[in-house]
Each structure stands twice: as structure tokens, then as C-alpha cells.
């Protein structure tokens, strides 16, 4: 991300700082992997629809090749018990990395009662009760945005 900022804003001047920050927000808030979304946003600003498509392809293609090569190595060595033990450790570390990110995210989001309740509800329904994600979240997303809208409106009226 820091590298993208230097290349796009400082060196090539395709965008100003504020434009870049808006892109970062969109990339983080909306669905899709953050770097892919940011690439799409920057590509779109540079060259419109074609730029967006090329940027997305450019950022996914190398990562796709690398993950397939690693997947190939995994298949080659999957007969050895040691492979699964090592990957079990890597999975534990990987999910630990998600925990660190999740706690940081939770601390910024769960400061008020309603967002906290929505986060806990989502976790319980998907994580513990194991309801299917797509129908549940299809209902939760509009409700959550609507309550945020109503709270925001009331706050701006009071303020």
C-alpha cells in the first residue's frame, strides 16, 4: 500500500492524496481483496474501464500463478505425513494473523452498542450456528447500513 502511494501519488501524480485516501476507503469497505480493489480504483482513474480491467488482471495474475505453483508442490508432497503437520502449523499461524487483524478491526468498530451487537450477532449466526452466509448477510447488510444512516442523520441534526 505504501509502495502504491509512492508510485501513484508522488512519482506519477495520477491522483492527489485525497483521491488516494478515498480509494483506500472504498477498497477496504467494499467486498473484494483490498489490494485488488485499490488497483481497480487506480486503474479506473488512469484509463477508465480498460485501465480498471488491466490493473485487476495485473495484480491477480502473478499471485494466481504463485499460488498454483505452491498448490502443485503441495500435491507433489501430500503423501508425506510431515507435509500435513507443517501445513497444520502454518494454518494455525495464518489464522493467528487473521486474529490480530480481526481484533484491530473490532476495536475500531465495536465502540458503540448497536455496531457491537451487529458484529456479535453475525459471528454467532455464521460462526456458531453455521447458518449459510449468503442469505443471512443479504439481510444483515441493508439493515446495518440503514441503522447507520438513521444514526448519522440524527447526529447531524443534533450537531
Amino acid at each position: 500500500m505504501a509502495w502504491m502511494h509512492r508510485e501513484i501519488v508522488e512519482r506519477r501524480k495520477l491522483l492527489d492524496d485525497q483521491g488516494f485516501m478515498t480509494g483506500l476507503t472504498i477498497a477496504q469497505v467494499l467486498p473484494g481483496a483490498n489490494p485488488v480493489n485499490l488497483a481497480l480504483y487506480l486503474g479506473m482513474h488512469a484509463r477508465g474501464r480498460m485501465g480498471a480491467a488491466v490493473a485487476v488482471f495485473g495484480i491477480i495474475f502473478p499471485a494466481f500463478c504463485v499460488v498454483l505453483i505452491m498448490g502443485y508442490l503441495y500435491r507433489t508432497y501430500s503423501d508425506f505425513e510431515a507435509t500435513h503437520v507443517v501445513l497444520g502449523g502454518v494454518a494455525a499461524a495464518g489464522v493467528g494473523a487473521t486474529l490480530a487483524m480481526g481484533v484491530k478491526l473490532a476495536r475500531s468498530v465495536m465502540v458503540k452498542i448497536i455496531p457491537t451487537a451487529i458484529a456479535i450477532f453475525t459471528f454467532v449466526v455464521i460462526g456458531i450456528l453455521r447458518w449459510p452466509l449468503v442469505p443471512v448477510v443479504s439481510v444483515l447488510v441493508p439493515l446495518s447500513i440503514l441503522q447507520a444512516y438513521l444514526i448519522h442523520k440524527r447526529q447531524s441534526k443534533d450537531g
Binding site: T25, V29, L30, G88, A91, A92, G94, V95, T98, L99, M101, G102, L105, A106, S108, V109, M110, P115, T116, I118, A119, I120, F121, T122, F123, I126, G127, I128, L133, V137, L140, V141, S144, I145, L146, Q147, A148, Y149, I151, H152, K153, S156
Partner: peptide
């Protein structure tokens, strides 16, 4: 105001989903 609402409204759902994912991997592993 919808811009703020989208940012604020999607955050808690993302948090809930991330922790659900953590639990799913811990169980599968």
C-alpha cells in the same frame, strides 16, 4: 450521508464474519 452509512454499516458485519472465519478454520484444523 449514505457514504458514511455504508462505511459504518459494513464494518460490524465484516468483524462478525472475520471471527466466524477464524472459528471455522480452528475447527477444520
Amino acid at each position: 450521508p449514505w457514504r458514511v452509512a455504508i462505511e459504518k454499516g459494513l464494518g460490524p458485519i465484516a468483524v462478525g464474519l472475520v471471527f466466524a472465519g477464524i472459528l471455522a478454520v480452528l475447527r477444520a484444523a
